[in-house]
């Protein structure tokens, strides 16, 4: 089994953080995992992406030429990556700001209005965690508890207070019917 996911969006949307927490969580469950960020001249407002590969055996390449899952937080990322997605793969789409439909017809599309949902929670910064709630539910590879444990490890002791809002954001995404 190998599952590759590309997370992509604007710099500042927490795209790398999504992948890094996910990688951490699957590591805790004993999988082989690689996390590879884009490391070019990205700046806030520019584009950012990362690839997470999860497998029950050694991972040859951390690059996804044909990812199983695509998490897109902005429109340019949808255009860039949708054609790479494996047939029957899944796109998780930030429907709050992506106003077009994917052209691919052979894949599953999950619209997640992360902007509105994070807005209702009173903190636009947790949009990425809302998205991860839906992602973890639909992909089913790890439990929500594992993800939250990974999140806690990444946030660390210093940001304990941030945990509560992130937990709510994750639950909102997890419980969303998509």
């Amino acid at each position: 089994m190998i599952r590759k996911t590309i997370f992509a969006g604007f710099g500042g949307q927490g795209v790398l953080m999504m992948g890094y927490i996910y990688a951490h969580a699957v590591m805790n469950e004993g999988y082989h995992v690689t996390y590879l960020p884009s490391y070019g001249v990205e700046v806030r407002g520019g584009t950012a992406n990362c690839t997470v590969a999860v497998s029950d055996e050694e991972i040859a390449s951390p690059i996804a030429s044909e990812p199983d899952y695509l998490v897109v937080m902005n429109k340019p990322s949808l255009y860039t990556y949708q054609n790479r997605l494996a047939p029957q793969g899944s796109i998780f789409l930030n429907s709050s700001i992506i106003d077009t439909k994917p052209t691919r017809k052979d894949v599953n599309i999950h619209d997640v209005p992360v902007g509105e949902m994070a807005g209702r929670l009173g903190n636009p910064r947790v949009q990425n965690i809302v998205m991860m709630g839906s992602f973890i539910k639909k992909t089913g590879l790890i439990t929500p508890e594992s993800f939250l444990k990974g999140l806690k490890q990444i946030l660390g002791e210093k940001k304990k207070s941030a945990m509560e809002i992130n937990r709510k954001a994750f639950a909102a995404g997890y419980n969303l019917e998509i």
Binding site: Y20, M27, H32, V33, T34, Y39, P62
Partner: peptide
Amino acid sequence: DGMMGQMSEP
């Protein structure tokens, strides 16, 4: 190389 440097693994 850059991939080894940038990649995270357990």
